[in-house]
Design a protein around this nucleic acid. Structure first.
Lengths: 231, 231
DNA sequence: CTAGAGTTTGAACGACTGGTTAAACCGGCC
DNA sequence: GGCCGGTTTAACCAGTCGTTCAAACTCTAG
């Protein structure tokens, strides 16, 4: 019997992917694929096994149950998003550039089925408390990230003498943005062409807004430098 | 064999609910309830029948299959939303009042499980083309309604001499609003308390924005009247 | 009262579900 | 060689699934 991993035998390795074992990885990949194509409601262990080219009893050997397998898929998705988020956070770049980067990630995630898988996991979370318990924190962490970005943006505005009146707080604007993004994901999955076009325009508009903000930030930095020179 | 309804025997009756037959209605209600509590992935005809207090073979007699039953649930939801939309459209009231009414509907739909059912149907639509074919038009019609509201609001602003710069068109703003609302629904279903609070603040902010808009509209109307009196 | 359409019933069908088990297989170690 | 922990296999389990069907029932029109 394989030891049921508590922290992975590899220990402190950050990218736990590597010491997953070929079979476990194949199963996880296949589960992801089935989830992305057939959805959670039609998810079958035997079909996952077939897709992975593996005996279906192996799924119960490596993962303990169907639920645990789905949770493993979610865990991997969470790990992947966390890494990306950290990389993006550390990377330099102004607001407009980060927005553009987020858009590129989104396009690629949509094409790879990653967005679909997340949506299926979300749907499954509605009925499965254990899944929700893992899903929700990730969603909230992402929203906090958006909120933090908005706070920084408003700080720049304030420095320039512009202050948004109550009740338009950073929380409110961050909520608008993150829920918009979420709604866009769910809409795009249904795949109405008119929606896709509208989303592009909406994202472009936000891009423009952020470019203006970045220009203002540059002006302020330049002005501060000039002022310091003068003194 | 019951005739498979094409347009309902009652003919042009608008509220087709009445001539549904007691059994058919009980089944449909039960299906809705199971969808709202257990979700689409765990939807079972036998449990629906048990919930409806009816022999489970009757479901296949009255509706042709599980898929058709789910489609019937969606159809009824669509009918209900269409009626509400028409009633709201005809009703007078300024923007802020309409927004408040929409919020009240939303709260009630969330409590009744209607939002959950719509989300489950949405998830099912991802894998079931026939369902999507019925689901998507309703979503798009709702978005058009939002767009129309934004157009009217912007007209008031323009009359007051305020014009939003490109690229902030009515389409873009409508997209922001409708996708925000959608995202809010999906978030609320997961039920994080901090989210609910944030949504309230965000909705309140929009409320405030619309109240200001309505005040401006009243001022314009008053101004126009005064001008006419003067002449 | 009877004929017959429409409805309801219980039982059954075959397919498939997630999960288990014992036996076989494989590598390295003593 | 023999042993052994970890892995893979095929067969099997009990149960549920959606669907079908013939027989029983209900009600109304003739």
């Amino acid at each position: 019997m394989e030891k049921i991993e508590a922290g992975e035998p590899g220990g402190t390795r950050l990218l736990a992917e590597a010491d997953l074992g070929e079979t476990k990885a194949k199963i996880l990949d296949a589960a992801f694929r089935r989830l992305a194509t057939e959805g959670y409601a039609a998810l079958s262990m035997r079909e996952i096994a077939r897709d992975a080219g593996v005996n279906h009893a192996l799924i119960n050997y490596h993962y303990r149950s169907k639920d645990q397998l789905v949770i493993a898929v979610l865990d991997r998705a969470n790990r992947r998003l966390l890494e990306r988020q950290q990389r993006m956070y550390r990377s330099p770049g102004n607001f407009a550039e980060k927005w553009a980067a987020a858009r590129r990630f989104y396009e690629s995630d949509l094409a790879s089925g990653f967005v679909r898988v997340q949506a299926e996991l979300w749907a499954a979370s509605l009925a499965n408390p254990e899944l929700r318990e893992k899903f929700l924190p990730r969603l909230l962490a992402w929203k906090r990230l958006v909120h933090q970005g908005v706070v920084e943006a408003l700080a720049i505005l304030k420095e320039g003498g512009v202050a948004l009146p109550r009740p338009f707080t950073a929380e409110v604007i961050a909520c608008w943005i993150s829920e918009f993004w979420l709604g866009m994901e769910f809409s795009d999955l249904l795949g109405a062409p008119e929606d896709r076009a509208a989303h592009k325009a909406a994202l472009d508009a936000m891009q423009k807004l952020l470019e203006d903000l970045d220009a203002r930030a540059r002006r302020q930095a330049g002005g501060a430098k000039a002022k310091r020179k003068k003194a």
